[in-house]
């Protein structure tokens, strides 16, 4: 994935992103942190081909993002909310992307079961979203994004609405899932500890219009485990990213 001098201006007036340039090699898990309203979500939507750049060029797997999405269809997106369809059961929600992509019917059931196993929700496949907790709903949302076996996974503050313990647990689960599937990940968050824990690299963005002001490598070996959070190096790096973020916000 490569972006060079990308600008996005909304409705001719609001400049959301300015002069964004980065390159992400396949299989890398990258986080994007920045103050609220800095255009982090816009950046993800650019990569997903939901928003077009006003200026500059962005390519995913060598193609324009919309074309890449339409032709390769190996992209999934996890939103801030679980965005489940309330009238569908857990398994029917997870099956949705397979239906939309006309995946072979014979495989569907098995792939749904596999995705639910990944997130530990096999016993809840017949339940409805309204019967689940926020954390479980987010797990369903993750299972739905993984059922298509994506090569590129975009996550837009998926754990922002959850309590800290649930967030940490889901971070560890996401780490485990990444280890198995090795997708290219782009994770937007404003939780620095989460970004350091999950990613190999952190892009720090400034306030609107969003620019990339720092590109931090996270040296801890993958896959990471919960005890990383209590190590001194982890705290040091978290502090460093925080400092960068403060400078960006000023």
């Amino acid at each position: 994935m490569r972006a060079s001098s990308v600008d996005v201006t909304y409705a001719g007036a609001i400049r959301a992103l300015a002069d964004i340039a980065f390159e992400i090699p396949p299989g890398q898990f990258t986080s994007i942190v920045g103050p609220s309203g800095c255009g982090k979500s816009t950046l993800l939507r650019l990569v997903a081909g939901l928003v077009r750049p006003t200026r500059g060029e962005l390519s995913v797997a060598g193609q324009d993002p919309t074309t890449a999405r339409r032709e390769a269809a190996r992209l999934s997106f996890v939103f801030q909310d679980a965005t489940l369809l309330p009238w569908r059961t857990v398994s029917a929600n997870v099956r949705l992307p397979l239906e939309l992509q006309d995946a072979p019917r014979a495989d569907r059931q098995q792939r749904v079961r596999g995705a639910l196993e990944l997130v530990g929700l096999t016993d809840f496949s017949g339940r409805y979203p309204s019967e689940l907790s926020g954390g479980m709903r987010m797990r369903v949302s993750l299972a739905r994004s993984l059922v298509t076996e994506p090569e590129l996974l975009l996550l837009d503050e998926p754990f922002g609405a959850l309590d800290d313990i649930t967030r940490q647990t889901l971070n560890e689960e996401l780490m485990g899932l990444w280890t198995r599937r090795r997708w290219t990940g782009l994770f937007v968050t404003h939780n620095i500890a989460e970004a350091v824990f999950l990613s190999e690299r952190i892009l720090v963005m400034s306030a609107r219009p969003g620019r990339i002001v720092a590109d931090v490598q996270v040296p801890f070996p993958m896959p990471r485990t919960a005890d990383l959070r209590s190590q001194a190096d982890f705290a040091r790096l978290t502090g460093q990213v925080t400092a960068e973020l403060r400078r960006a916000d000023a």
């Binding site: 939901l50 999405r69 269809a73 997106f77 801030q80 009238w87 939309l100 298509t148």
Partner: peptide, 24 residues
């Protein structure tokens, strides 16, 4: 609107959006 984006991400057709999202 996020659900509409979800459907767009998976390249849903107009009919799929109608029958699987709008009508329900």
């Amino acid at each position: 609107p996020t659900l509409l984006e979800l459907f767009e991400i998976y390249n849903a057709s107009r009919w799929q959006s109608l029958f699987k999202l709008r009508l329900p």
